[in-house]
């Protein structure tokens, strides 16, 4: 089984990637000291894996409570990768889970504005 699981820390989200099922989840808060140190290895794994996919179904769920501005940049980069993966002929579904009316919802909607091939769905809690 090809998976990547990293527990949440005080300032980084839980990572739960299942490369066989193509089900991915980031859950928690993200405001690390060095975003590249946390994010770059994840992006490398995803980029390498997604490059090989054709006609696959990819589910990516973001359940973020808070992220800082450097993380926003990294997340937007991940959206770009998901969009490219969709354009390469995969069925990519992004789920953005958050509380209704909070700033995370607004950020998600702004990130989603540039998506044409990947699907985006808000999953609103109370």
């Amino acid at each position: 089984m090809d998976t990547l699981k990293i527990g949440a820390s005080a300032r980084t989200p839980e990572v739960d990637f299942d490369f066989d099922a193509n089900v991915y989840r980031l859950k928690g808060e993200c405001y690390p000291e060095d975003i590249a140190e946390f994010f770059a290895p994840l992006m490398d794994r995803l980029r390498e894996h997604f490059a090989r996919l054709r006609g696959a179904r990819v589910d990516f769920t973001f359940e973020l409570i808070y992220f800082n501005s450097s993380s926003a940049k990294a997340i937007l980069g991940l959206f770009d990768l998901l969009e490219q993966t969709a354009k390469a002929g995969n069925d990519v579904a992004i789920v953005w889970a958050c509380e209704e009316g909070d700033d995370i919802q607004e950020m998600g909607e702004e990130f989603a504005e540039d998506l044409t091939a990947a699907k985006f769905r808000l999953q609103l809690g109370e």
């Binding site: 405001y31 808070y66 450097s70």
Partner: peptide
């Protein structure tokens, strides 16, 4: 309120960083 709390915290993080 929750939104103000989150905004204050978020701005605190950006300011300190």
């Amino acid at each position: 309120d929750a939104k103000t709390s989150r905004s204050v915290f978020a701005v605190f993080v950006e300011q300190v960083q």
